[in-house]
Nucleic acid binder design. Structure first.
Length: 595
RNA sequence: GGAGCCGUGGUGUAGUCGGUUUAACAUGCCAGCCUGUCACGCUGGAGAUCGCGGGUUCGAGUCCCGUCGGCUCCGCCA
């Protein structure tokens, strides 16, 4: 069979007789002479069919069409100098066919198997097996393979063991919606697919495994985004007898190792670290894109005494007025400003005020409520200049004001072309709040997860001011994308019970849902902590892609379906009977697979 | 749950604003010609009831309503 790969042939192979396998990528029939670009996963090579090599052979070659799967035996020859193709890595040589075998013919493909092919994404997903033949997709999946391989090597070297944890596990409260799996042998009971191996990896620490990792598939039944799939892969890591900085340093080393090996980039270390509080204040985000400045400014103090009642009242009630200076946008029209208001409104902002510095004065519907001194102070604080536009959002909820402005910051980072591509800005965001009040549920919920340790010196605040307690948690952010996050965990029953209490669980509920964990903590649990990275997102960034779907072989659409297999699908009544399941959905006639 | 964009031969688009040709272009496909092409070239040909359903109209790819699907975003995602 095959002796060489297409893309690996070079002038060094001149004179050799080789056997190649692959797909016909393109055919050029010149009448008396016929060329085939033969493709395998390594690349392309040109095969020449000449009538002199046999009439039968040439006749067969004439029937070749794109995507036929063939075997070619032939002689590698250096091309004459004026026929070298510099655009092709194998362009110095070509293969003179002596034997041809057609393994399989192919219908005209519904999508082009070539890079830069303009095809609707739905079609690519419907014919994913063809889409994955494109060199770019093959490159992405190879990159993904290399990432996991390097991570395994790195962690193995550091003494970590890869340990598998169950996919069929128990549903736990908190967090995302679970995917449920009915139990046939336990009527009326359900497993849940893991949202992450969190509890198991902590139990492994109790077990004395000390250093664990897993390339773990995780499932969350929530709505999708370009960077969110319902099933995704986490690089899950946990270790015992450790502290925050040990973990952060180790992870920096791992990420730096990846970038060195895969991109030849030496990342500056240590990565900067920023408190959550500061990230929100300056960037309006807990995952700030630090590739560009354009920072938010809290001008609450400066406008607290103004005659503008909206600002004054909001500040008086503990709210915020957040401002952003947009260089060169002072000439924005009414329509353009309305558009900005709309963007802010998406994030809940009730309005957007502005000062346009144009024609030597401040143009604004609200300028009349401010003294010249107040205006000057704001302009100076913002570092604004003639021709700039200062936009302001005020809200009683400081987080809302900052988040909405943070969204505008990102928008203008792009609009004003402030974001350099091809640079990688890492940032640790640390000391998140432990808890956050959920108005809908009317209770506190964990910002990270319920097993996150409070900062040791703030544990006592849990009783009276739970909202002030900060967590021993950390997120790794790259170019505004959350790559991963983790924390030091609680390892004492008493502290864990206290946090459960703060979350509004009764002792009975805690015991029912997490009794096994509380019990485990009583049998000698080491202090431990860990982290999990989104593998898909990491590979996406390394591949320079803008959607997770480019680095997942068989991804789901935004409505969580698979266009290739048409999953999810209806199932036989018998299957449901076996599982003791009744659905409340009226039966529709099942759609046949692919028309 | 909500908002926006998109859906026209196999594929990618134009045509939609402002109602009317034989629905145009490129590529792919088929056939013929061609011995140095590499996005081969030239000549000819086939291929679309414009996502689906309804409505308005003398007349709908175009306007209206609904629906399905894809994408982006908000909510949601410990």
């Amino acid at each position: 069979m095959r002796t060489h790969y297409c893309g690996e042939l070079s002038s060094n192979d001149g004179g050799k007789t080789v056997c190649l396998n692959g797909w016909v990528s393109r055919h050029r029939n010149l009448g008396g002479l016929l060329f085939i670009d033969l493709r395998d996963r390594t690349g392309l090579v040109q095969v020449v069919f000449n009538p002199d090599s046999g009439e039968e052979l040439f006749k067969t070659a004439e029937t070749l069409r794109n995507e036929f799967v063939i075997m070619v035996k032939g002689r590698v020859e250096k091309r004459p100098e004026d026929m070298v193709n510099l655009d092709l890595s194998t362009g110095e040589i070509e293969v003179y066919a002596e034997e041809l075998l057609i393994f399989n013919q192919a219908k005209t493909p519904p999508i082009y198997v070539e890079d830069q092919a303009k095809v609707e994404e739905a079609l690519r997903l419907r014919y994913r097996y063809l889409d994955l033949r494109r060199p770019e997709m093959q490159k992405n999946l190879q990159l993904r393979h290399r990432v996991t391989k390097l991570i395994r090597d790195f962690l193995d070297e550091k003494g970590f063991w890869e340990i598998e944890t169950p996919m069929l596990t128990r549903s736990t409260p908190e967090g995302a919606r679970d995917f449920l799996v009915p139990s046939r042998v336990n009527p009326g009971k359900f497993y849940a697919l893991p949202q992450s191996p969190q509890l198991f990896k902590q139990l492994l620490m109790v077990s004395g495994m000390e250093k664990y990792f897993q390339i773990a598939r995780c499932f969350r039944d929530e709505d999708l985004r370009a960077d969110r799939q319902p099933e995704f892969t986490q690089i899950d890591i946990e270790l015992s007898f450790t502290d925050r900085d040990t973990i952060l340093n180790l992870m920096e080393e791992m990420i730096a190792f990846l970038f060195q090996e895969l991109k030849g980039i030496t990342l500056p270390r240590p990565f900067p670290r920023m408190d959550y509080e500061e990230a929100m204040e300056r960037y309006g985000s807990d995952k700030p894109d630090t590739r560009f400045k354009l920072e938010l400014v809290n001008i609450s103090c400066l406008v607290a005494d103004s005659e503008f009642a909206v600002f004054r009242n909001i500040v008086a009630k503990g709210g915020r007025v957040v401002a952003l200076n947009l260089p060169g946008c002072g000439d924005y029209s009414r329509k353009q400003l309305d558009e900005l208001t709309k963007i802010a409104a998406k994030y809940g902002a009730k309005g957007l005020a502005y000062f346009a510095l144009t024609e030597g004065k401040v143009k604004s519907a609200i300028a009349k409520f401010f003294t010249q001194g107040q205006l000057d102070t704001v302009i100076q604080k913002m570092g604004a200049q003639e021709g700039d536009l200062i936009i302001m959002i005020a809200d009683q909820d400081p987080k809302l004001a900052h988040t909405a402005m943070g969204a505008l910051r990102l928008e203008f980072g792009q609009r004003l072309n402030l974001i350099p591509d091809d640079i990688f800005k890492f940032l640790w965001v640390v000391n998140f709040p432990l808890l956050e009040y959920d108005n809908k549920e009317e209770r506190f919920v964990a910002v990270h997860h319920p097993f996150t340790s409070p900062l040791a010196e703030e544990v006592d605040l849990l009783d009276d001011e739970p909202e002030k307690v900060r967590a021993a948690s950390y997120d790794l952010v790259l170019n505004g994308i959350e790559l991963g996050g983790g924390s030091i965990r609680i390892h004492q029953r008493s502290v864990q019970e206290k946090v459960f209490g703060a979350l509004g669980f009764s002792p009975e509920q805690s015991k029912e849902k997490f009794g096994f964990l509380l019990e485990a903590f009583e049998y000698g649990t080491p202090p431990h902590g860990g982290i999990a990275f989104g593998l898909d997102r990491l590979v996406m960034i390394l591949a320079g892609a803008s959607s997770l779907r480019e680095v997942i072989a068989f991804p789901k659409t935004t409505s969580a379906t698979c266009l290739l297999t048409e999953a999810p699908s209806e199932v036989d009544a018998k299957q449901l009977r076996d599982l003791h399941i009744n659905t409340s959905i009226l039966k529709k006639a099942p759609k046949p697979l692919h028309e």
